[in-house]
Design a protein around this nucleic acid. Structure first.
Length: 677
RNA sequence: AGCGGGGUGGGGUAGCCAGGUCAAUCCCGCCGGGCUCAUAACCCGGAGAUCGGUCGUUCAAAUCGACCCCCCGCUACCA
């Protein structure tokens, strides 16, 4: 199935909602497994498209944008950038990462809806909903607050009381109020559109049961559980402004419920991809042809949605291929509890790029934590251990001992030699691994697949050990040459097999071999020939010591408050005001403590030809000796002041990020006293 | 509350759906010995779980049934 017959595969990852910064749970729960799967499909030669995008509509975005006084689009733009950068850094290989706020998605959604409507699967109905006259909006359940009728808790929400956890409707609350402005809501009957899921119940049931062999039991059972309770028409419109307009007379002021438009984002993202590659109709081959296999990677909270509601939409439309496999993943916890942004508890991905680490160390451990069967848990201790013992000491060690031995003893060229039966057998071994790894991945058993690849590294280490080339190189050079020839090829095979999981490392291994990362068909073929010249051989990963772990922990636990950034942008400074500052580069000549002050340092600096004294609150962040010799940026014409009795004739500039402080320095060599503007 | 998933040596995990070959798999860690090209691996030996709890079905249960405990998700207008 995997290496032999070529498939046409579309892979989607649950579209992240953009009111949050992604954390490791989001990565392990969908982006990473989807990416591994997609990379593998490409490696196996399947025709592969991997798409995603951000889900940007809905009440939460509209409300928080309003609070900040910006329009929702601006807020989404900001978060979209954050998301995109994170996925890029983690090497999530989207063929296209789209946005539901793009025109192409609005058009696609409306077109999709029209067809569903024409087919008779849309009915009108009435909902009695609370609305706030003052805010001029209909309130979603959770935006109504009041007193819980059961336990008397005053802060109960319209969907649930957090105190006694009873399920509520907004109408149940005593003295209800709008969660945004606090005024009393009015209940009105409002016309809405519903998708007639009830009409599709029998077909959905048959379809789900037909997938028993392919889907995991959890997914099938949960879906059937829903069917069993009976499907009812489900509302697909909302009374807010931020979203896709409903193209139907009498509903012009409504938008689609985000759950209706979000999955259609899969289609629009594929369309956008097709346009980008210059074949605008290409998307149809994946969405409208029977032989296309569509894989959805989602979290467990999304299972009913992707097994009932979304396929129902597709059936109602009638022109689309149904999902082939819905991979419902469980959750990733963190050190014994749920990840929580507000408590700063967890690993948030926006600062990963600042850790100075390879994305592969994160990908490695997170792959082992992909919650395929049950919830899993990130533990720093285990992260450190696995990186050091497995990535560094097993895989890294095998590659490095092989290549460095070749450098030292064979002049940096892969030796050639007469091979024994055992040598040949091992060279061929890669083929079997390729097949086994392929089967595991196709079955979405990614953790097992990665472990399988590491077995090959184990075999390599064992083989190297048994042949003792460090002895043989003196006593039986031919044997040593054969051994290293085989090992170089094993390194290459490993790199290829590893490439879906650890793409950067795969590249680095191949680069050191002076080769390119090949495809699955190159594995086990002894592609590294005698005479191949190695280059720039060095260890793949550094070990993570306790200090580094503490640093990583610190960096990844903080999340930028993007909301605050909008406030800053609003206070403009005129160019004239800016020009009054005389910013200059300066060289630090001396640095030392200020008597009687813990936090201050006294610096002697040179600005052009002139020497000055500066006092700065750097002591908690820099040692004096670290500063000497640095070129910094100072406000040269700041009015002199005395701090703790010492004159300060200017101030230096530094970036302040919470407890972290970084001096600004020019990134090229410039003359002392250069103007900064 | 109902529905679904899970509870296996210190950590993780397989097996359980098609009960016996499971006094239970594999990885990591731990203890002892060998080797040294490598940010050291590999080899040999060792300690460690009665499979959430109770009761049953059976010649035989981690594996089937009942009840209970704990964790997680869903329960439709939160995405």
């Amino acid at each position: 199935m995997t290496g032999k017959s070529k498939q046409k595969v579309l892979i989607t990852c649950a579209l992240p909602y953009v009111n949050n910064v992604p954390h490791i749970g989001n990565i392990a729960g969908s982006h990473l497994p989807a990416d591994i799967f997609a990379r593998f499909c490409r490696l196996a030669g399947h025709e592969t498209v991997f798409i995603g995008g951000s889900d940007e509509h809905g009440t939460p975005i509209e409300v928080s944008a309003e609070k900040l006084g910006v329009d929702p689009q601006t807020l989404c733009d900001q978060y979209y950038r954050v998301h995109k950068e994170i996925y890029d850094w983690l090497l999530i290989s989207y063929d296209n990462f789209s946005r539901t706020s793009l025109p192409i998605h609005h058009e696609t959604t409306q077109e999709f809806f029209r067809k569903v409507y024409e087919n008779g699967y849309v009915v009108e109905g009435t909902l009695r909903l609370p609305s706030c006259e003052k805010c001029g909006r209909v309130l979603p359940d959770r935006y109504v607050e009041g007193t819980c009728p059961k336990c008397g808790y005053e802060g109960a929400r319209g969907d649930q009381c957090e105190k006694c956890s009873s399920m509520l409707n907004p109408g149940d609350l005593r003295s209800p109020r709008c969660a945004i402005c606090g005024s009393a809501p009015v209940f009105k009957d409002i016309k809405h559109l519903f998708l007639s899921l009830d009409k599709l119940e029998a077909r959905l049931k048959e379809w789900i049961e037909g997938n028993r062999d392919v889907w995991s039991p959890q997914v099938v059972n949960m879906a059937l559980g829903w069917i069993h309770e009976g499907l009812k028409p489900r509302s697909i419109t909302r009374d807010i402004k931020w979203g896709v307009k409903v193209p139907l007379e009498g509903f012009e002021d409504r938008v689609f419920y985000v759950w209706f438009d979000a999955p259609i984002g899969y289609v629009s993202s594929t369309k956008e991809w097709a346009q980008k590659i210059g074949k605008p109709e290409e998307w149809r081959r994946f969405w409208q042809e029977e032989d296309a296999k569509i894989f959805h990677f989602i979290g467990k909270d999304n299972i009913p949605f992707h097994t009932i509601f979304w396929p129902g939409m597709l059936m109602a439309n009638g022109e689309f291929t149904l999902p082939y496999r819905v991979a419902g993943l469980q959750y990733l916890n963190y050190e014994g509890d749920k990840i929580s942004k507000s408590r700063g508890f967890g690993i948030f991905c926006e600062n990963l790029s600042r850790t100075g680490t390879s994305p592969d160390i994160w990908r490695y451990y997170l792959t082992l934590l992909i919650p395929e069967t049950g919830d899993t848990e990130w533990k720093w201790r285990e992260f450190q251990e696995r990186v050091n013992k497995e990535l560094v000491a097993n895989l890294g060690n095998f590659v490095y001992r092989t290549l460095s031995f070749t450098m030292k003893n064979f002049d940096g060229r892969v030796p050639g030699a007469e091979l024994s039966g055992r040598d040949r057998e091992l060279l061929e071994r890669g083929k079997r691994y390729a097949e086994e790894v392929g089967n595991l991945i196709w079955d979405i058993r990614l953790r097992d697949a990665l472990k399988k690849v590491f077995e090959l590294s184990d075999e390599g280490n064992r083989y190297f050990q048994e042949n003792e080339p460090w002895k043989a190189v003196k006593e039986d050079p031919e044997r040593a040459a054969a051994c290293l020839h085989v090992c170089a090829n094993l390194c290459y095979d490993l790199a290829v097999l590893l490439s879906p999981f650890l793409p950067e490392s795969a590249e680095r291994i191949c680069a050191q071999l002076g080769m390119e990362v090949g495809t699955l068909e190159d594995v086990g073929q002894a592609r590294v020939e005698a005479g191949q010249e190695l280059r720039d051989v060095r260890p793949l990963f550094p070990k993570l010591d306790d200090k580094k772990i503490a640093e990583l922990r610190e960096i990844t636990s903080s999340v930028t408050e993007y909301e605050e950034m909008f406030k800053v942008e609003e206070e403009y400074v005129s160019y004239e005001e800016f020009k009054r500052l005389d910013l200059r580069t300066a060289e630090v000549l001396e640095a030392g403590p200020v008597e009687g002050a813990d936090k201050l340092l006294k610096l002697k600096i040179r600005v052009g030809g002139k020497e000055k004294q500066l006092v700065a609150g750097l002591a908690p962040y820099y040692r004096p000796e670290e500063l000497v010799g640095k070129t910094i940026v100072v406000v040269n014409n700041l009015k002199p002041a005395k701090l703790r009795g010492e004159v300060s004739e200017g101030m230096l500039l530094a970036a302040v990020d919470g407890k972290k402080v970084a001096l600004l320095t020019p990134d090229k060599d410039v003359k002392s006293g250069s103007k900064v503007e």
